[in-house]
Amino acid sequence: MPAPLRDIVRALEAFGGVVDRPSSGSHWRARMGGKVYPLAAHNGERSEIRDLYIKGLCRCFDLDESEFRKKL
């Protein structure tokens, strides 16, 4: 299931992640455990993030996908 970017940010923060919103570029920068993952924000915080994208995010940060989805 896809999810709005604002929900993904909230879920990441619940897992201790931080999301920076650079003033330039079309991506926000999610940080957790010393790793960085870009979040496509070209349509603002209402951007709908596709399922495959969410799976990739969870892989990067070693998050259990089902636990992450519970926070969305």
Partner: peptide
């Protein structure tokens, strides 16, 4: 929304 996946860096983004 088109999705692009860079396999070597396992990095994903999407666009219109």
């Amino acid at each position: 929304q088109w999705l692009a996946h860079c396999l070597e860096f396992d990095t994903i983004s999407q666009g219109n």
